[in-house]
Design a binder for these strands. Sequence first.
DNA 1: GCGGAATGATACATTTATGTCTCATACGAG
DNA 2: CTCGTATGAGACATAAATGTATCATTCCGC
Lengths: 188, 188
Amino acid sequence: MYHSAMPEPPLRPPMRQAILDAAIDTFARNPGASLSEVATRAGVGRASLHRHFASRADLIAAASGQCMDEIDAATAAALKDARTARDRLSRMLEAVVPLGDRYHFLVSEIVDDESVHKRYEDELDWLGHLADDLKAEGVIAADVPRSWVVANIDAQTWLAWSEVAAGRLAPAHAADLALRTLLEGLGP
Amino acid sequence: MYHSAMPEPPLRPPMRQAILDAAIDTFARNPGASLSEVATRAGVGRASLHRHFASRADLIAAASGQCMDEIDAATAAALKDARTARDRLSRMLEAVVPLGDRYHFLVSEIVDDESVHKRYEDELDWLGHLADDLKAEGVIAADVPRSWVVANIDAQTWLAWSEVAAGRLAPAHAADLALRTLLEGLGP
DNA sequence: GCGGAATGATACATTTATGTCTCATACGAG
DNA sequence: CTCGTATGAGACATAAATGTATCATTCCGC
């Protein structure tokens, strides 16, 4: 074992990451949960949590950023070779459905942080353009309001993850159902 | 005016009702809101609130019951002369969409109260049977899982109200879109 | 093994919500 | 008009969460 210095990420994932994960998990289930619960779930003392995140708001802002990073990364990878808008929708669903808990966290937390809020607006904007493109392709009927399309994409994403999380559907099946519901439900 | 004892509800709606309405409104927006906020929105003192509802849990349980009563009444009236399952779905949407805030309250609050919980289960059960009937009528495809249908009816109801509350759609239009999305999206 | 940094446990002060209580007042029935 | 009741305002005690500080211990690099 001569070359032990492999480019691995920190062997013991830093505590910060464990806390963020625990926060996302905990707050997604119960937005009013206490920091003690988060610390406990992370397997960390409450004091240590405060060493990494000065305040509750700090933690939530950081967790939101983390969620958006993960979602952005997943969608960016999935959208790489999508040519049509329909393809983009399909691949985005497949990519995001497994991240439903991250997604749910963002929805359940009202984020005060400005930069987080801006990213969220951008995300909605992106969905709006996707809706426009879907209409232009004739995949979605022209008389369906843009906001209805956007809201439905959001809702079906969340629904699909929800069914997966409840153990009622397999991830691929759920993403399929979401896509089908969207295309048939809003199609011409 | 000899027969003054008409079966009118209390002429000055009792404070209890104002508090319940304020609670539903407040908690639907922010499940973590304080009782002070509720009292203020109801236009009453916090002490008076406690005279009618001993604890926060009491208030939430009562508000939940109230919501369910209203939803039950609205749907019962709407379903009176619905012959097909498709009719039931359509009329239910029209009846419940305007009550979206009541509906949202029930979803946003985790209800501990046992009787409320039971009524909620019954409601889900009813939706499940509706889904079965819709499938039997051939309005909804047989290969769509029951839970997906139920979850989607829930989601579309909430979506429609949401768009109405945001001022983006008229109530009738929103209910129509919800019905269409369901029938086309889950149809054979 | 040593020494510094990070952690866990604990105590503490502060804040906020909750629930109870009292008292003065306003309101309505008689 | 008067009495009883309900209300509003506020004081109060309690509980819980938050944020800070301290100290002993553990862990890691050296």
